[in-house]
Simulated scan of single mutants.
Amino acid sequence: MSKRKILVVDDNEDICLTIKQYLELYNYMVEIAHSGTEALKMISGDFDLIILDIMMEGIDGMELCGIIRDRVDCPIIFVSAKTLEEDKVQALSIGGDDYITKPFGLKELKARIDSHLRREERIRSNERYLLSSKNITIDLLANEVFCKGVKLHLTKKEYEIIKLLMLNKNVVFSKERIFERVWGLDSESQLETVTESIKNIRKKIRALDKETSYIKTLYGLGYKWDVTYEKR
């Protein structure tokens, strides 16, 4: 696994160096900026986490967070000697993810860093199991389909049809092939159940999204998932 990259922004050089040396013992890659202006030149999507002091000359930590939050989505941990509740609330409301008051222990800082990075990894892992197409999203882990954020109440076969077509966008599946893949060759159901299931799927989607017919019929050939096909 590649080293996690952290940016420390603090005008106290001793604090920056102490944090850098400690985190590097645990295989983190640490870069340092001693002002908000210097940090702005370094900010990019490459950082996995940013540690940000509040009280700095020029661009302070609060202002810097507001500037960079649209550029980066990594966790931002504020470290500050300001202990008032309103300071903490403001820091978290403008895009900070955590707040540690100075003085703090390095073990605690590392524990907070580890916690945020684990959460980010879980979020990225979960996103790999979400499949989206325009207003339709499939949660492949939960076996659920959503249209405009609303869960569709589907039968198991209807879910399997949507999943099959969405995973193979623009691939045409004949009625026979869908039946084979979803019901199985040994099924006692009739081939026409495919037609009925697709009709039900369209009805359930149309109740929430009347603009697009996601499953396109190619007469004589079968069906395919095609969000460019507008229902007339």
Rank of each mutant, 00 (worst) to 15 (best):
226 D>E: 14
138 I>Q: 13
12 N>S: 11
218 L>I: 14
161 I>N: 07
7 L>H: 01
58 G>I: 03
199 K>L: 07
93 S>P: 05
96 G>N: 02
38 E>Y: 00
34 H>T: 00
201 I>H: 07
41 K>N: 08
112 R>L: 05
52 L>S: 00
46 D>V: 07
23 L>H: 01
94 I>H: 09
156 K>C: 08
21 Q>M: 11
130 L>V: 11
56 M>G: 02
55 M>R: 00
45 G>L: 04
105 G>R: 11
153 H>L: 13
5 K>T: 06
17 L>K: 13
116 H>K: 05
228 T>G: 14
98 D>P: 02
27 N>G: 06
173 F>Q: 05
201 I>K: 07
199 K>W: 08
183 W>E: 13
132 S>Q: 13
209 D>P: 03
53 D>F: 01
68 I>A: 01
165 L>Y: 09
70 D>Q: 10
83 T>E: 14
27 N>E: 15
113 I>A: 00
201 I>W: 05
150 V>S: 14
41 K>L: 04
100 I>F: 06
42 M>D: 05
222 G>P: 04
179 F>N: 02
225 W>V: 07
150 V>H: 14
141 L>T: 12
144 E>C: 08
51 I>G: 09
125 S>V: 11
113 I>K: 05
10 D>W: 01
48 D>L: 04
74 C>V: 00
173 F>W: 09
207 A>E: 15
72 V>P: 04
24 E>D: 09
63 E>P: 02
29 M>C: 12
222 G>T: 05
141 L>C: 13
210 K>C: 08
95 G>F: 05
12 N>W: 02
31 E>Y: 00
155 T>Y: 07
59 I>N: 03
107 K>A: 10
65 C>I: 04
146 F>S: 09
59 I>D: 01
6 I>G: 02
203 K>G: 04
85 E>S: 11
134 K>A: 14
145 V>A: 15
100 I>P: 05
160 E>C: 12
82 K>H: 10
14 D>T: 09
135 N>F: 10
90 Q>Y: 12
74 C>I: 00
7 L>W: 02
109 L>P: 07
191 L>V: 03
35 S>T: 04
129 Y>W: 15
17 L>P: 00
61 G>W: 04
163 K>A: 12
176 E>D: 15
113 I>P: 01
110 K>F: 05
85 E>R: 14
215 I>A: 09
141 L>I: 15
16 C>N: 12
203 K>H: 14
201 I>P: 09
110 K>T: 09
167 L>R: 13
190 Q>T: 08
108 E>D: 13
164 L>T: 14
42 M>Y: 02
23 L>I: 01
26 Y>C: 10
161 I>P: 04
181 R>A: 15
177 R>Y: 09
117 L>A: 00
121 E>C: 01
224 K>T: 15
211 E>W: 08
49 L>Q: 02
134 K>C: 09
48 D>S: 06
158 E>G: 10
65 C>G: 06
8 V>M: 06
100 I>Q: 07
227 V>T: 09
122 R>Y: 15
91 A>V: 06
152 L>H: 11
191 L>E: 10
153 H>V: 11
92 L>W: 04
76 I>E: 06
116 H>W: 03
113 I>R: 00
16 C>K: 03
161 I>T: 04
181 R>G: 03
179 F>T: 05
228 T>K: 13
7 L>K: 03
71 R>C: 05
149 G>N: 08
87 D>T: 05
14 D>F: 07
198 I>P: 06
114 D>W: 01
115 S>P: 00
24 E>A: 10
53 D>K: 00
